[in-house]
Structures are given as structure tokens and as C-alpha cells.
Amino acid sequence: MIKAEQKPVDEILDFLKPHRKILLAGCNACVAVCHAGGEKEVGILSSALKMARKKAGQKIEILEDCSTRQCEPEFVQELKEKAEEVEAVLSIACGVGVQTVARMFSDIPVYPGLNTTFMGETDELGVWIERCQACGNCVLHVTGGVCPVARCAKQLLNGPCGGSQDGECEIGNDVPCAWQQIYDRLKTIGQLHRMEEIIPVKKWGRESRDKGPRTISREDLKL
């Protein structure tokens, strides 16, 4: 799922400076699961902001809410009443949520409280690792279910670089070489021949952003 981290409080304080009453909106989906933007974090951030502003002698009133999913307009609509009361919204959803809120409440400023970081997997409680970059052209069937785009520091598509040593990436930090992992995995599942398949240069065309934001359109669901 989407993983995010909270922005440093002082950074948030900085862009909230002009406002005296805001809505702090969390999201109970992905960012709640990674302990960055759920109901609990709304409370903590709200408390911290209030204290900081009190200390600065410029009190702030904060309404709190937490959506089921901030990327759904219907759920964001539920915030409407509170949004009408405030000068600005601080959203601690992922970047998608922030933009949904911004689109829905077009007449007030909306600020992000999180840095949306990546799509990843839970390694253990409190540790998340990037696994997918949403490149739009999946090659996992060739690479044994290990993504070289997300996991290789150089995003190499056809085998490791010269820096791979003893299964470790040359960047250090105990980062495993993605291509070593691909090799090991293919060997285990008996598909080592896949290594010989050439993955063509990625078409950074339709999948890429040069045609504007990517959209997925499912005709059967659209009616």
C-alpha cells in the first residue's frame, strides 16, 4: 500500500502561519496503516500544533476529522460542513487525498501534512520497504516477482551492474542487489532461462507522464 511519513511539525507550522482556524483531516486507509495519517496521528499532530501556536502567542483552533478514504469524493464530501467553518484544511492523507480535498473544496487552501513516499510492503511493525514505483509496465513475470525498477538502485532492467558483490548492492547500507534476488528466485522456481529474456527499453511513452497524468479507464465499470 501507499506509505507516507509525517512532515516535520515546524514545516507544517510554517505554512499554517496565516491561519487561525483549520480542519485537520486524516485518512483511515493506507496512511493509517503506516501510522502516519490515521485518527491517532490526527490527535497527536493537532495537539502538537496547538501547543506550538499557543507558545508563539498565536492560538489556533483545529477541527479534527478522519475520512474512511480521502481518495473518494463521496467520503471527502462528509468533511464539507467542517470545511466551511475553517480557513484552511491540513490533510494528512497521501498526495492523492490532499488533491481530492483541494478539488472538492476549491475556495480554501489545502496543505499536505505528509510526505507521500512510496508503495511498499511491511517488513515488520514500523518498517516499510518500497516495492513498486507504478511504472506502468510490469515486468515481474520475467523477473521472478522481484521488481528491478523499485529495488535496483540503478533501475537496471537486464541484469546487475558491476557493483553487485556477494549479493549486495554497491551503494552499501545492507541493500541487497535486486538482480541477485531475481537470480535466486528464478533459480528456486526453475525459471532461470528467464534471465536470458531481454526486457526492452522501457517505453516512457504512454505509460509515462508526457501525456499528462496517467489515468486508468475501465469501460466495463464506467457504464
Partner: peptide, 8 residues
Amino acid sequence: GIMERIGL
């Protein structure tokens, strides 16, 4: 960490 950021 938070307290440091807000000057407490």
C-alpha cells in the same frame, strides 16, 4: 522529536 520542533 516533536517537542524539539515546536520549541518545548
